[in-house]
Amino acid sequence: MIELLVDNRDLYLTGFRNTILLFVLAGIGALVVGALLAAMRVSPVPVLRLVGSGYVNIFRNTPLTLVFFFFAFAYPRLDLLDVPFFTRAVLALVVYTAAFVCEVVRSGINTVEVGQAEASRALGLTFVQTLTAIVVPQAIRSVVPPLTSVLNALLKNTTVAAGFAVAEAGQITPTLSERGASVLIGMVWIAIGFLILVIPLTATQRTLEKRWSVAR
């Protein structure tokens, strides 16, 4: 069993390196875009609220493969900036995951007592200051567990990129079968690989929950 891993280590290394790269880049992007969307959805400006909820309703209800199809096949026909497929895969994951991040963050914002924002406004903080200095830091606490689930899903969703020619972990099995190696054992190693990747996520969740549970 171990020989398969050793013999095909190049395959596994590039595969998982790309998976991690996709995950980290898309994760950062989704967190940023999702947080901005959440800010729009709770802002006092009606137009921003409309744009935010429209975005979430569209992308949360669209299958990820469809989003990938768009970036793989429709995007090049738009004659926009020519970007490599890896970047487009990251974009697809960001666009899709940001909708989920937004809803998780927004529900977290709703758990923060109204009095916190009132006290902040009464002191003269602006809407953005109130959100960034008072509301979001407290919302994050209740957001950590569901956000970890969203990131976990993102990690697994990176395999969809394999179907669109990004050489990440999901691409390993088809290549293995081309090389005539055992696909079953190959998949076991991929599963183990993903388990290993999830461990730091879960560990981070635990640490963050522990650190922030004290100051409530």
Binding site: A119, A122, L123
Partner: peptide
């Protein structure tokens, strides 16, 4: 609002900040 101080029935101290941070926050930000 920065010139009008307000004290609430439920205190509404910022739960994620220490007491001294609560007091020093607005002077720094505003």
């Amino acid at each position: 609002r920065a010139d009008v101080g307000m004290v609430f029935q439920q205190f509404n101290l910022f739960a994620h900040k220490t007491i001294v941070q609560n007091v020093a926050l607005a002077p720094v930000l505003v």
